[in-house]
């Protein structure tokens, strides 16, 4: 149990108190649920027709499935491109030349500090003016590129901190058998760091999936956009958005579970740590963190 540090093993009185608190907590919980249901019922939001229209095949074929498909496609593009971007700039930050490290560092720090939404909007409008991308593809490209710049930069930090996080002995051992800096990086450190990074990459995928919903603001037809359209067309906005949230929660929850599973499976394949960790905050040197 996670709270073990704060609490001693409970005695009979503590156990009784816990039981009472548990009952009180349960009653409060039920109370909140009842209150919400009562409010929903009062506004006529519990009418069966508002919910059953979510289950028709037309709703899924024309709205939710195409929306989900677009969301997943954008997220997959963004994941693959972010990994390339992250590997490139992450290695740049580990380069033996100071100016390469500096350039890579500036790029990475910049894109981690700028809100994804700002990048998305600027790309969306900028690509429209620049006329380099066919108009119907502009929203998708804006979403994918913005997600890539941000998440790629985060992954670049993960690569760097992954390599730095390896025990010093790995590098020393490589040097001892006569490997150069590059050889050691390529043959010893990076493979271990990448394996250690896999769970973090999966959690990064969760972040990308969530941020792809920002595409709604730049008219990208992703899940949220189509859920909103469905809700507007059928007079069940609340229900439609609830379903949209439920889909996101389910997918992200499964991915998080998968990340945990990968972490335990891989822990013996590397001397780096596999528990999902995230890059340090913009401007920071090296620090583990929890991301939002």
């Amino acid at each position: 149990m996670s709270g073990a540090v704060l609490f001693d093993t409970p005695g009979p009185r503590a156990r009784r108190n816990t039981l009472v608190a548990n009952a009180v907590g349960g009653v409060v919980l039920v109370g909140i649920v009842v209150l919400v249901l009562w409010k929903l019922g009062q506004e006529g939001q519990l009418e069966a027709s508002r919910w059953t229209s979510l289950l028709t095949s037309a709703a899924w074929v024309n709205y939710f499935l195409p929306g989900l498909q677009n969301t997943v496609v954008a997220a997959l593009y963004a994941v693959v491109l972010s990994m390339a971007f992250g590997l490139f700039f992450g290695l740049g930050r580990l380069a033996p030349y100071a100016w390469v490290r500096w350039v890579a560092g500036t790029v990475v720090e910049f894109f981690r500090a700028v809100p994804v939404l700002l990048m998305m909007i600027a790309l969306w409008l900028g690509l429209g003016f620049a006329k380099v991308v066919p108009a119907p593809q502009i929203p998708l490209v804006a979403v994918v590129v913005a997600l890539t710049l941000y998440n790629g930069s985060v992954i670049a930090e993960l690569v760097r901190s992954g390599v730095h996080g390896l025990p010093k002995g790995q590098r020393e051992a490589a040097a001892a058998i006569g490997m150069t800096h590059t050889q050691s990086l390529r043959l010893v450190e990076l493979p271990q760091a990448l394996i250690a990074m896999l769970p973090s990459l999966v959690s990064q995928f969760v972040i990308i999936l969530k941020d792809s919903a920002l595409g709604y603001i730049v008219t990208f037809n992703e899940l949220l956009q189509l859920s909103r359209q469905f809700g507007a067309a059928n007079g069940n906005m609340l229900q439609s958005l609830a379903l949209c949230a439920a889909i996101f929660i389910t997918i992200n929850w499964l991915l998080t579970r998968f990340a945990d599973w990968v972490a335990t499976r891989l822990s013996h394949r590397t001397s780096g740590r596999t528990t999902p960790h995230v890059a340090p905050p913009p401007g920071a040197e090296r620090e583990e963190q929890v991301a939002a």
Binding site: K131, P134, A135
Partner: peptide, 17 residues
Amino acid sequence: FVSSPSAQRENLLQTGQ
């Protein structure tokens, strides 16, 4: 038929789409 949101109408015509 091609979808032409308000903001993209000029662009669609100018680029011949």
